[in-house]
Amino acid sequence: MSSERKPLPFAATFTAGAIAGVSEILTFYPLGVVKTRMQLETGKSSTGLVGAFQTIIKQEGFGRLYRGLVPPLLLEAPKRATKFAANEFWGKTYLSLSSSSEAKMTQSLSILTGCSAGATESFVVVPFELVKIKLQDKSSTYAGPIDVVRKVIAADGVLGLYAGMEATFWRHFWWNGGYFGSIFQVRAMMPKAETPSGELFNNFVSGSVGGLIGTAINTPFDVVKSRIQGAAKVPGVVPKYNWTYPGLVTIFREEGAAALYKGFVPKVLRLAPGGGVLLLVVEFTMDLFRKALGPPYL
């Protein structure tokens, strides 16, 4: 984030985030399906990443790897736009609160900014995440996204679409803090790029490292979120997984520490390079907008 050039208009940030998000989701979506399946499986898992892929394709067909794709695609534009726009907004807000006129971004501040952006983003994504989880579940009998929305509202009202809000909040809070905080540090450690291709490389590497660290931090929260949103509500029965931190304790006690990282391999295989793709495409697209708009955006 530069203090010298004028921030891009919201429309430019929104478009850059949308393009980056759609690019990432189309490339890595099957890994997300496998990740969800592994997280919904209770007890000790008997199959790994390759085995999970083979089982889904053999028993349900290749197309199942893209089941539930519509909600994420519809979500990517507002989700990624919110992520990067909120990160920029909170960064400028926190810097403006500094008493120094020469205040600059630091790693601590970039972590705080990322966590704030994640908290903001979580409010946008919950209904889409709920629909995606319901469709990706192996036992799902829903006809499609609209069927999920209709049945959830009929059973639990409109607020039923926000089941797992608290868990989603913590998942995005910690991922974005790790992601943007790591990007700041990795960029500072890498040699300054001398060419446009070098700049793209730096963005991909720093985004990939950020995706790796963010995923390592937030996977336990993602496991709990999947359990909360994947469970069917039974009238008069308190859900086994209801709140995030008690849910973490329950999984740890009943299934062991490794269960908190179920689905980590497909998740990190998606979100490490996926985080690189996101940052690369966002920065590349925003650079095109800066050149098109000219000074003072350059």
Rank of each mutant, 00 (worst) to 15 (best):
A193K: 03
A193W: 04
A193D: 03
T195P: 01
T195D: 07
P196Y: 07
P196W: 03
P196T: 08
P196S: 07
S197L: 12
S197M: 08
G198D: 00
G198M: 00
E199A: 13
E199K: 13
E199F: 08
L200V: 05
L200D: 13
L200E: 11
F204C: 07
V205D: 10
S208P: 09
V209H: 02
V209T: 01
G211S: 12
I213R: 08
I213F: 11
I213P: 00
G214T: 12
T215P: 05
T215S: 15
T215Y: 07
A216N: 08
N218E: 06
T219W: 07
T219E: 09
T219G: 05
P220F: 10
F221Y: 12
D222R: 02
D222Q: 08
V224D: 11
V224I: 15
K225W: 00
S226N: 13
S226C: 14
S226I: 02
I228P: 03
Q229D: 05
G230Y: 05
A231D: 13
A232K: 14
K233A: 14
K233M: 11
V234R: 03
P235C: 13
G236Y: 00
G236T: 06
V237Y: 00
V238H: 08
V238D: 11
V238G: 00
K240H: 09
K240Q: 15
Y241S: 12
Y241K: 00
Y241L: 10
N242D: 15
N242F: 09
T244W: 01
T244F: 04
Y245D: 04
Y245W: 15
P246F: 14
G247W: 08
G247T: 04
G247A: 06
L248F: 04
L248P: 10
V249N: 12
T250C: 02
T250M: 02
